[in-house]
Amino acid sequence: MAEHLQAVVFDLDGTLFDHRAAARTGATAFLTHLGLPASAPALGRWAAAEDEHFERWRSGEIGFAEQRRERLRTVLPALGHPLDLDDTAALDDLFADYLRRYRAAWRAFPGSRDLLDELRSRGYRLGLLTNGDAEQQCDKLARTGLSEAFDVVHASGRTGLQKPDERAFTGIARALGFAPSACLFVGDDPERDVAGARRAGMRGLLVDREATSPDAVRVAVLSALEPGRPVLFEA
Rank of each mutant, 00 (worst) to 15 (best):
M1Y: 00
M1S: 12
A2T: 15
E3G: 14
L5H: 02
L5W: 04
L5Q: 05
L5N: 02
L16F: 14
F17W: 14
F17P: 10
D18M: 10
H19A: 13
H19R: 15
A22K: 03
A23L: 13
G26F: 05
T28P: 01
A29M: 12
A38S: 13
L43M: 06
A49M: 02
E50V: 04
W57D: 01
W57G: 07
W57M: 06
R58G: 03
R58S: 13
S59H: 05
G60M: 09
E61W: 00
I62K: 01
F64M: 01
R68I: 06
R69H: 14
T74W: 06
G80V: 11
L83H: 09
A90M: 05
D92S: 12
D93T: 14
A96F: 00
Y98A: 05
R100T: 09
R100P: 01
R100I: 00
A104P: 13
R107G: 12
F109L: 07
P110S: 13
R113M: 00
R113Y: 00
L119T: 11
R120Q: 09
R122N: 10
Y124N: 06
Y124E: 06
R125E: 07
L129N: 08
T130N: 07
G132H: 02
E135Y: 07
C138W: 07
K140S: 02
L141A: 03
T144F: 06
T144G: 04
L146M: 05
E148D: 15
A149P: 04
F150A: 10
V153W: 09
H154S: 03
R158I: 04
Q162H: 15
Q162K: 11
K163Q: 03
D165S: 08
E166P: 13
T170S: 14
T170D: 08
A173I: 13
G177E: 00
F178S: 00
F178I: 01
A179D: 15
P180A: 05
S181H: 03
C183H: 02
D189W: 02
V194E: 06
V194G: 05
A197G: 06
A200D: 05
A200K: 09
L205Y: 06
D208C: 02
E210Q: 14
T212R: 12
S213W: 06
A220V: 10
L222S: 07
L222P: 00
S223T: 15
A224L: 13
R229C: 15
P230D: 07
P230I: 10
A235M: 04
